[in-house]
């Protein structure tokens, strides 16, 4: 089960965890900052929705931040990710700026998709983020294909595919993992198992207890980690990246985690108990990581406070930037359906 927030990990000496041995204080503090940035971005996004400032729908990943950052923190702009409908954390993990994310929520030209995609399609190809996806399982073949392109170019980059437990019963999951297994592609499949595909629990939807078990069918390692522990997630990623970069092929990492908010705005939480939600709130990954960093002297309490204050400021400025953005003009409706200059 996930670690309690008050459990610390060894960060120094012969028993030091690779997560702490490999990253310096600045990197660790930046990881924490991004986790806070995800949290506050989503809280602000929900708030603006409730206040009627933005429309449409959104899917919040509050409680899952350790997975997003643990996976993305060592990736470069040349490594690809594909994301899911619950993808704000992945975007921020991959380096997206929250001002352009908010601008997308507001449907502005300054948004990552110029207001055409909204919450479910935020992407930034320039930094290797090939985008969130509105189709459950839609990103699995795409990440696999991106890994094929990497292999064709003969570089050492990797493609990372985020997907939820809900996607593991889609045909796209099985077809993609099989192809990656056969062709030994440099792709890392990261299952964020937050226990429910909308309202249906994995116990009711999935024949195996652990999604990672399914890796065996495709000749790749399948590992289960505590998705609320950034150290656990990141160490599994280290091994998977090393394997991919050596040409040894794909890995499936299952991160057991939980979304403390509902599936989307329509969710009345009829399928799970308040006790269950409260129990998982006690395992919040952000205070746990913050506690670890302070307990081991990586960061002072004052620094922690400064990180949170910096995040608050960034969120406020980003929100104001987005609100003041440019609305699309109606005559731009048909722009970018086809590439300019090609037959259309």
């Amino acid at each position: 089960m996930p670690a309690s927030p008050k459990t610390t990990s060894s960060i120094k000496g012969p028993n030091a965890r690779p997560f702490y041995a490999k990253h310096n204080a600045e990197q660790l503090k930046e990881a924490l900052r991004r986790m806070w940035l995800i949290r506050r971005f989503e809280e602000m996004a929900e708030d603006s929705y409730v206040r009627g400032l933005t429309h449409g729908t959104m899917h919040l990943s509050i409680g899952q931040e350790a997975t997003a950052i643990g996976v993305c923190m060592d990736l470069t702009d040349k490594d690809y990710i594909t994301s899911t409908h619950r993808g704000h954390g992945h975007c921020i993990g991959k380096g997206a700026e929250v001002r352009y994310m908010f601008a997308e929520f507001f449907g502005k030209e300054e948004g990552y998709c110029r207001g055409r995609g909204g919450s479910m399609h935020i992407a930034d190809p320039a930094t290797g983020n090939l985008g969130a996806n509105g189709i459950v399982g839609g990103g699995l073949p795409l990440a696999t294909g991106a890994a094929l392109a990497i292999k064709q170019r003969k570089t050492k980059d990797v493609a990372v595919c985020f997907f939820g437990d809900g996607a593991n019963n889609e045909g796209a999951f099985h077809e993609s993992l099989n192809i990656a297994g056969v062709w030994k592609l440099p792709v890392i499949y990261v299952c964020e198992n937050n226990q429910y595909g909308m309202s249906v629990s994995t116990a009711r939807s999935t024949a195996v207890k652990d999604v990672a078990t399914r890796a065996a069918g495709y000749d790749m390692p399948g590992v289960v980690v505590d998705g609320n522990s950034i150290a656990d997630v990141n160490e599994a990623m280290m091994a998977a990246m090393e394997r991919a970069r050596k040409g040894q092929g794909p890995t499936l990492i299952e991160c057991k985690t939980y979304r403390t908010k509902g599936h989307s705005r329509s969710d009345r939480n009829r399928y799970r108990s308040k006790d269950e939600i409260e129990d998982w709130k006690q395992r919040d990954p952000i205070p746990a990581f913050e506690y670890d960093l302070q307990a081991h002297g990586v960061m002072t309490a004052a620094e922690a406070k400064a990180i949170r204050a910096g995040v608050e400021k960034e969120i406020e400025e980003a929100f104001a930037f987005a609100q003041a953005g440019t609305n699309p003009t109606p005559d731009s409706l048909l722009r970018d359906i086809y590439t300019a200059g090609s037959a259309a």
Partner: peptide, 11 residues
Amino acid sequence: GVAVGAAIAGS
């Protein structure tokens, strides 16, 4: 789908 992904990624 793998072909689509490869196309997006430059192949």
